[in-house]
Amino acid sequence: MKKIHKAETVSILFQKYGAAAVFLILILVNAVFTPNFVNVAVMWNIIAQMTPIMYISVGMTFVIGTSGIDLSVGSILAFCSIILARMLQLGYPVLAAVAVILLIGAVIGIFNGFMVSKMGIQPIILTIVMQMILRGFAIFVSKGKSIPITNSTLSAMGLHRFPGGVPIQILYVAVIFIVGSILAKKTALGCYVEAIGDNNKAAFLAGVRIVGMTVLIYMLSGVMSAVAGILEAARSGAVDPSIVGGLYEVDAIAAVAIGGTSLDGGKPNITGTFFGVMTMILITMTINMNNIPYEISNIVKAFIILFSLYMRRESKA
């Protein structure tokens, strides 16, 4: 007979509400240790900064749900935002440029999905390669130089503040949270993702069109990265193709993992991912407010991620 240890119940609790719990713990720790932690202005800045990660994370949640992974998101973002910047520089209207890069994001995503599902290439290796190629193309577009964003319409999309200093990004966050949740919960997509992630063969036998669904999901991830590229370009005064979007895949995967979507595939948990990104925002805030130098900040970040994953790891029978 097995006794239920206290630690086990805690870990079950963490499994269910892990992301929210880590989020709360971080707030508590900060409230105690960080001087004037409730600095609203800083918080708004960081939320505005992290909105692209939010979009990428939502796409990533679905991809990871199918037991895949997309490491090319940062490079898709870079490629899309540099093309956006270049088109605006050449005088194209914002709407046309946005349409073009959404299309580019979709096409790259479709290619990824096709290679994964039809050609059977491992997602991790395919998207590593795509990461290299797309980063190369991004740098190629501007010959390595950064391109300034001078278009006032686009900049307004990224820099507008509502009264009280609330950034416009709060709207974008709300939109993606609602759209993502609906996709995951109210449409068949969420079920299909879970079916493919849990058991590819069974899903196929049950009549799920694996290739079509996988292509659709990677396309979603590509489009999300393109949107993130627009948001990134809108917020910053210039796009540097060798830096922009670097290591975003790491933040996104960490957010998804903290959020409770199993990396072995399974139910896409958008609410969890939302809290996952919020946790990443809090981590960044903690680091900024405590004046932790950049070098240590990454170490702290890594250990918070590892800690939260340890707390909500799946207990093996």
Partner: peptide, 14 residues
């Protein structure tokens, strides 16, 4: 027993 991919992603950053 943290998933290897995530565990080493974390240590990579660290």
């Amino acid at each position: 027993k943290i998933l290897p991919f995530i565990a080493t992603l974390g240590t990579m950053i660290a």
